[in-house]
Deep mutational scan, measured.
Amino acid sequence: NRLGIIYEIQGMKAVVLTSEGEFLIIRRRKDMKVGQQVSFENEDIYNV
């Protein structure tokens, strides 16, 4: 599992900021809110 803070939500995608200072786009889940810490898997990351 990886951890990140939700920075922005766009439709079915969420932008998270990881503890390494990396911004990633992941698959959104219904319970996500901006500012929330979430765990996610590598499979949830969109390749940009």
Rank of each mutant, 00 (worst) to 15 (best):
L24Y: 09
S39F: 09
S19W: 07
G35D: 03
K33G: 04
S39H: 13
V15F: 13
R27F: 14
M12C: 15
L17G: 02
E43P: 02
Q37C: 09
L17K: 06
G35P: 01
N1G: 10
I45A: 06
I9S: 01
E8H: 14
K30T: 13
N47L: 06
K33E: 10
K13F: 13
I26T: 01
M32Q: 07
A14R: 00
I9K: 01
F40A: 02
N47I: 11
I5M: 10
E8V: 13
L17Q: 07
R2M: 09
N42P: 07
Q10T: 06
I25R: 08
G11Y: 08
K30L: 15
N1L: 14
Y46S: 07
I25G: 03
S39I: 07
K13M: 06
V48E: 12
E43Q: 04
L24R: 04
V38L: 07
Y7E: 05
V34T: 05
S39C: 13
G35Q: 03
M32W: 15
M12G: 11
G4H: 02
E8K: 13
G35Y: 07
G21N: 08
V15N: 04
I6V: 14
N47C: 15
I5R: 11
R2V: 04
G21S: 06
R27G: 03
A14I: 08
S19T: 12
N47Y: 08
Q36C: 13
D31C: 15
V16N: 00
V16R: 00
K30N: 15
K33N: 08
G4L: 02
E41N: 10
I9C: 05
R27S: 04
I6K: 00
R2S: 06
L17W: 15
N42H: 11
R28E: 01
V34P: 05
I6M: 01
K33Y: 12
K33V: 09
Q37F: 10
K13I: 07
R28H: 12
R29V: 05
A14F: 09
T18E: 02
S39W: 08
G35M: 06
L3E: 09
Y46T: 10
I26E: 00
R2P: 03
Y7V: 10
T18L: 04
R29Y: 12
V16F: 01
V15S: 09
G21H: 03
E41S: 14
G21D: 03
I9F: 15
N42E: 14
R29I: 06
L17H: 06
N1A: 11
A14G: 01
K30E: 15
Q36L: 07
E41K: 14
V34F: 04
E8A: 14
G21F: 05
G21T: 02
Q10Y: 13
D44C: 08
E8L: 13
E8F: 14
Q10V: 11
T18I: 04
N1P: 12
L17R: 08
R29Q: 05
N47P: 08
Y46N: 06
L17C: 05
G4N: 02
S19G: 05
M12A: 09
K13E: 05
E22V: 14
Q37Y: 08
Q37E: 15
D31S: 15
V34H: 04
M32A: 07
L17Y: 13
S39Q: 09
I6N: 00
R29P: 04
I9Q: 02
I6R: 00
N47W: 08
V34I: 10
R28P: 03
I5K: 08
S19A: 10
K33Q: 09
